[in-house]
Measured scan of single mutants.
Amino acid sequence: METPSQRRATRSGAQASSTPLSPTRITRLQEKEDLQELNDRLAVYIDRVRSLETENAGLRLRITESEEVVSREVSGIKAAYEAELGDARKTLDSVAKERARLQLELSKVREEFKELKARNTKKEGDLIAAQARLKDLEALLNSKEAALSTALSEKRTLEGELHDLRGQVAKLEAALGEAKKQLQDEMLRRVDAENRLQTMKEELDFQKNIYSEELRETKRRHETRLVEIDNGKQREFESRLADALQELRAQHEDQVEQYKKELEKTYSAKLDNARQSAERNSNLVGAAHEELQQSRIRIDSLSAQLSQLQKQLAAKEAKLRDLEDSLARERDTSRRLLAEKEREMAEMRARMQQQLDEYQELLDIKLALDMEIHAYRKLLEGEEERLRLSPSPTSQRSRGRASSHSSQTQGGGSVTKKRKLESTESRSSFSQHARTSGRVAVEEVDEEGKFVRLRNKSNEDQSMGNWQIKRQNGDDPLLTYRFPPKFTLKAGQVVTIWAAGAGATHSPPTDL
Rank of each mutant, 00 (worst) to 15 (best):
A179P: 00
K181F: 08
K181E: 12
Q182H: 09
Q182L: 06
Q182P: 04
Q182T: 14
Q182S: 03
Q182M: 03
L183M: 15
Q184E: 08
D185F: 00
D185K: 12
D185E: 09
E186M: 08
E186Q: 08
M187V: 13
M187L: 10
L188I: 10
R189M: 00
R189T: 07
R189K: 00
R190A: 09
V191E: 07
V191Q: 02
V191K: 00
V191T: 06
V191A: 08
D192L: 08
D192W: 07
A193C: 12
A193L: 07
E194D: 04
E194H: 13
E194T: 00
E194G: 03
N195D: 04
N195T: 05
N195W: 05
R196V: 08
R196K: 07
R196G: 05
R196N: 00
L197A: 12
L197Q: 09
L197T: 08
L197I: 04
L197C: 12
Q198P: 01
Q198R: 03
Q198C: 09
Q198T: 07
Q198M: 07
T199D: 02
M200W: 00
K201T: 15
K201L: 04
K201E: 10
K201D: 01
D205W: 00
F206H: 03
Q207P: 02
Q207W: 03
I210A: 03
I210G: 01
Y211I: 10
Y211F: 09
Y211G: 07
Y211T: 12
S212L: 12
E213D: 08
E213K: 11
E213C: 10
E214L: 01
L215M: 01
L215G: 08
L215H: 03
E217I: 08
T218N: 14
T218L: 15
T218G: 12
K219L: 11
K219V: 10
R220M: 14
R220E: 12
R221S: 06
H222Q: 11
H222M: 07
H222S: 07
H222C: 15
H222P: 12
H222T: 11
E223R: 07
E223S: 06
E223G: 08
E223H: 12
E223A: 06
E223T: 11
T224I: 08
T224L: 07
T224P: 01
R225W: 08
R225M: 10
R225K: 05
R225F: 01
R225Y: 12
L226H: 07
L226M: 12
V227L: 12
V227M: 15
V227G: 15
V227I: 08
V227E: 10
E228T: 09
E228G: 05
E228W: 01
E228H: 02
E228L: 04
I229A: 10
I229H: 03
N231F: 04
N231Q: 11
G232E: 03
G232I: 01
K233H: 14
Q234F: 07
Q234E: 15
R235A: 06
E236A: 06
E236P: 06
E236G: 05
E238V: 12
E238W: 03
E238N: 02
S239Y: 12
S239W: 13
S239Q: 02
R240L: 15
R240K: 15
L241P: 12
L241R: 08
L241M: 01
A242H: 08
A242M: 13
A242T: 14
A242Q: 09
D243T: 12
D243I: 11
D243Y: 11
A244M: 02
A244Q: 02
A244I: 08
L245F: 15
L245D: 05
L245M: 01
L245K: 04
Q246S: 07
Q246C: 08
E247Y: 05
L248I: 04
L248K: 01
A250F: 13
Q251E: 10
Q251I: 13
Q251T: 12
H252F: 08
H252V: 07
E253W: 03
E253H: 05
E253K: 13
E253L: 05
E253P: 04
E253S: 03
D254T: 13
D254H: 09
D254F: 11
D254R: 01
D254C: 15
Q255E: 12
V256N: 05
V256E: 07
V256W: 13
E257S: 03
E257T: 12
E257P: 02
Q258T: 09
Q258M: 07
Q258W: 07
Y259W: 09
K260T: 09
K261D: 13
E262R: 03
L263K: 06
E264V: 15
K265H: 06
Y267I: 01
Y267S: 00
Y267P: 05
S268V: 15
A269I: 09
A269D: 08
K270Y: 00
D272N: 10
D272Q: 02
N273W: 01
N273T: 05
